[in-house]
């Protein structure tokens, strides 16, 4: 088994009456790109803040690198939690100099990360003159300083335009290809699906589901149907009992097929009962759809 990079055991955290985390346990192993998914207030940032030492948990414990490195573990981690936090009156270069000094990294590495994130030309501009996207890139530069083994990224695509999101995705993919372990919390489920090997889904401080992304994605087929009489078709399908789940969605009906029935059978059944279908297509649920389904329960 690969090395255990982060082990979280039974962590709980309350803010007054609000239970931010409830008995959370996760293990993350070397080389994984681990996505943490959840709606606002589900405990994603609290989890990352606890493991990065910004806040203390009420119960439970965690360990990095199987505790081999004691308190020096942060030198092996690059982390961006929530917003980029820099001195607004300092330039990109000066801000990264502070980060380099804290991490004990040579200042010569600053040039490398600024080139990697496309900020080299703006290295002598003040942080407060940067757009949100550039601030995020600078934060990523700080994360990559010293070429850490592990990246912890909380909403790294926050505030970025589509091109910026694609650029960040490429950087993350590049780091993953280099064998780095990446822990990434995001609302952008499509991004998680594209980048991550593993994922965990949080809701109200609890872990709902975790595992490999392709295992989390259901292999069961769904069929989208549309006719001129969608309401009647919906009632017919519910009564017919050929589907596990029938839901109406925008301009149509989505059904989870019950084996051994398939789309050809559903088409024939609908036709024989007087429904002319305008559309019928099979699809597998995206991570986003499954996520929404899970957190709605």
């Amino acid at each position: 088994m690969a090395n255990e990079i982060l082990k979280i055991e039974n962590i709980s955290k309350r803010y007054g009456n609000i239970e931010a985390l409830n008995n959370l346990s996760i293990s993350i192993y070397a080389g994984q790109v681990f996505g943490i998914l959840g709606p606002n207030g589900s405990g994603k940032t609290t989890t990352l803040s606890i493991v990065m030492g910004i806040i203390h948990s009420d119960n439970g414990n965690f360990s990095w690198f199987e505790d081999v490195y004691g308190n020096d573990f942060k030198k092996r981690i690059g982390s961006l939690i929530e917003t980029p936090n820099f001195y607004p009156y300092l330039t990109a270069q000066q801000n990264l100099s502070i980060t380099a000094k804290i991490k004990g990294v040579s200042e010569t590495d600053i040039e490398r990360v600024l080139i990697l994130t496309g900020l080299y030309e703006r290295r002598n501009y003040r942080f407060d003159s940067f757009s949100l996207g550039m601030k995020q890139r600078l934060a990523l530069s700080a994360v990559l300083l010293g070429d850490p083994e592990v990246l912890v990224l909380d909403e790294p695509a926050n505030g970025l335009d589509p091109q910026g999101i694609a650029d960040i995705r490429e950087i993350i993919k590049g780091q993953a290809e280099m064998g780095k372990t990446i822990i990434i919390a995001s609302h952008l489920l499509d991004e998680i699906e594209k980048v991550c090997t593993h994922a965990a889904i949080f809701k109200k401080g609890k872990l709902l589901k975790s595992g490999k992304v392709h295992e989390l994605l259901s292999n069961e087929e769904q069929i989208f149907l549309s006719s001129d009489r969608n309401a009647e078709l919906f009632e017919f399908l519910v009564r017919a009992g050929v589907c596990k789940n029938v839901t109406t969605i925008d301009k149509g009906i989505l059904i989870d097929v019950q084996q051994p029935f398939d789309s050809a059978y559903i088409n024939k059944l609908a036709f024989e009962n007087g429904f002319m279908l305008n559309a019928i297509e099979t699809r597998t649920q995206s991570l986003e759809e499954q996520f929404l389904e899970l957190v709605k329960k």
Partner: peptide
Amino acid sequence: TFRQHIIDG
């Protein structure tokens, strides 16, 4: 930035 310094090490 206190928070960031803690994160950075």
